[in-house]
């Protein structure tokens, strides 16, 4: 069974848990899933086993605490320490799928912007290869750093009683705003230079749509 199918099944089965068990289990689940370096397939398999076990135990009146112990954090840490790392091949597939998807949406949005602004004034639909490349790399770096930071924020806060959701949101929000600001500033201050080519809105839309489609196909084929 593929990881995506296990996730879908997990979502359905979690509804059968009692409120208390659901809370305990969901924390374990988030804690393990937000550890991005782990093999997704292996993580989802053990999470499903634990959920099945909990559901069976629940029938006999046992709680998650009875089954997995009073210290969910060290339990989850132990599970994590025995889970294999994600294979490089799978991580690469995932990253390239996200990159193609982002680039696709970027081009679609650009085409819409060109079209809308073009109604009001003359627009320059040239693309300067070097500055555009720098901006795209910057966006990719920001997105990947953002995902890592937000996941590790959640990971750290899960069993930490002192941390509140509010603080977490503020931290994540600040990071997002900061990243956005850097990209805006870079594209504002960077001068157009070097070789360029004409890339009108309709071409941008076409290429963007194709890239988004490709990324969806890549996602469907994953593993």
């Amino acid at each position: 069974m593929k990881a995506s199918e296990l996730i879908a099944q997990n979502n359905q089965k979690r509804d059968l848990l009692t409120e208390e068990n659901e809370k305990y289990y969901s924390n374990l689940l988030l804690y393990i899933r937000t550890k991005l370096s782990l093999s997704e397939q292996q993580s989802e398999e053990v999470l499903m086993e634990m959920l099945d076990h909990l559901l069976e135990g629940q029938k006999d009146g046992k709680t998650a605490r009875d089954i997995f112990g009073d210290d969910p954090k060290s339990y989850a840490d132990e599970i994590i320490s025995h889970l294999p790392e994600e294979e490089k091949k799978n991580s690469l597939k995932f990253v390239s799928q996200v990159a193609v998807n982002l680039l696709g949406w970027f081009l679609v949005i650009r085409s819409i912007a060109l079209l809308v602004i073009g109604q009001m004034q003359e627009v320059d639909s040239r693309v300067f290869i070097i500055p555009s490349f720098i901006i795209l790399v910057l966006i990719a770096l920001m997105v990947s750093a953002g995902v890592k930071v937000i996941f590790s924020l959640i990971h750290q806060s899960l069993f930490n009683e002192k941390s509140s959701d509010k603080k977490l949101m503020v931290k994540a929000g600040l990071f997002g705003a900061g990243g956005f600001l850097i990209i805006m500033a870079a594209s504002y201050f960077m001068k157009d230079f070097g070789p360029s080519f004409e890339f009108p809105w309709i071409a941008s839309l076409g290429v963007g749509a194709v890239l988004v489609l490709i990324s969806w196909i890549m996602k469907g084929r994953k593993k």
């Binding site: 292996q42 053990v46 086993e49 634990m50 076990h53 135990g57 046992k62 009875d66 089954i67 997995f68 112990g69 339990y75 132990e78 599970i79 320490s81 025995h82 889970l83």
Partner: peptide
Amino acid sequence: EGTIYPVLL
């Protein structure tokens, strides 16, 4: 009961 999962892994 939970101890078996780290062992199995």
